[in-house]
Nucleic acid binder design. Structure first.
Length: 322
DNA sequence: CGGATTTGACCGGCGC
DNA sequence: GCGCCGGTCAAATCCG
């Protein structure tokens, strides 16, 4: 733990490029083309023909412009609002448990929920669904003395389970240069904890999606190196519609027609991001830099699968220094 | 009053 | 085995 640097899963964006705000070149998120004249100068387009259509909305737009609409990140982050189909990043490493007797969760999103986080709660779930209720884990057993035995067994079981479950949910982190800690992303979150971060004066906040049965979590913390940067780490995928979308213009933000014309396809946000997610938790961390029109809001997206990203947008990727 | 946040305690993993 | 640390719980508190 002390060396988070080595733990890809625990990757700490702060450990490099903290100078994001500095004069570091910032690339526009390629999948949405660039209406951002100033920032994409270095953006080669040769490999991005599919993305160069000016009609595309820039990621930036998504993140920044949509802020006003209360939709923002959700669109870019997940917004599985439209499709239940899910790519399973976790599948790729074969670590999927479904086949292993691990109950396939009730919904297709299981993949993204290798039951890991939940796994902590081990207890629960051998059961079936990661009920947000999950919870009750440790404390409860404590109280009911009768469960002691059971609990004991459960522990053993969970222990073995844990080994394979070691892998946690796919995550990706967002760096946002903003004064606001908790950025609106269209989903409703409930804060369930806050912890001081080692070596940082800024605390880390833990949020959980308030939607029932949605196990998505996110952590928000501020860079201690550059307090103007907020790191938002998402874990898991939403298994429900984005609340904001349902009532908003979100649909227009990334209309299928636009997305359809990209090589990414209609499921873009979900699809793409899912693909960015770690096939395993051991890959390199890769980052994509992008920026909003407003210089006050720069963003950086981290993903672990460098190879994939390189395939997709070779020119936009900055590989993490080992 | 119901839902969200705060905050101290607890648990489990991991390194030494 | 021990201690550290990240993550989570849940009672208390806050807030609209």
């Amino acid at each position: 733990m002390s060396n988070e640097k080595e733990d890809p899963y625990h990757y700490d964006p702060f450990h490099y490029n903290i100078q994001l705000g500095a004069n570091r070149p910032v690339s526009v998120f390629p999948f949405f083309n660039d209406n951002i004249s100033g920032y994409n100068q270095q953006a080669p387009t040769q490999n991005l023909q599919g993305f160069s259509d000016p009609s595309f909305m820039s990621f930036t737009d998504c993140l920044h412009g949509s802020m006003d609409h209360y939709n923002t990140l959700s669109r870019a982050l997940d917004v599985s609002c439209s499709s239940s189909e899910v790519i399973s990043p976790v599948d790729q490493d074969g670590s999927r448990k479904i086949g292993a007797g691990e109950p396939a969760a009730t919904n297709q999103y299981t993949p993204s929920t290798p039951n890991s986080s939940i796994s902590n709660s081990s207890s629960n779930d051998g059961a079936t669904e990661e009920d947000p209720e999950k919870i009750k884990k440790h404390k409860q057993p404590k109280e009911s003395t009768e469960d002691v035995d059971i609990d004991g067994d459960a522990k053993k079981v969970s222990k073995t389970k844990k080994k394979e479950k070691r892998q946690k949910e796919p995550r990706f982190a967002f760096l946002t240069k903003s004064e606001i800690d908790h950025l609106e992303d269209g989903y409703r979150w409930r804060k369930y904890g806050q912890k001081a971060v080692k070596n940082s004066p800024y605390p880390r906040s833990y949020y959980r999606c308030t939607t029932q049965k949605c196990m998505v979590k996110k952590r928000v913390e501020r860079s201690f190196q550059d307090p103007s940067i907020v790191i938002t780490t998402y874990e898991g995928q939403h298994n429900h519609h984005c609340p904001a979308t349902l009532r908003g213009n979100a649909a227009g933000m990334l209309s299928p027609s636009l997305l359809a014309s990209t090589s990414i396809g209609q499921t873009f946000p979900q699809d793409f991001l899912t693909r960015l997610l770690p096939p395993s938790n051991q890959g390199d961390q890769t980052s994509i830099f992008y920026q909003t029109h407003d210089p006050q809001h720069q963003h950086q997206l981290y993903a672990p699968d460098y190879g994939l990203l390189q395939d997709l947008v070779p020119s936009f990727i900055h590989k993490k220094q080992p």
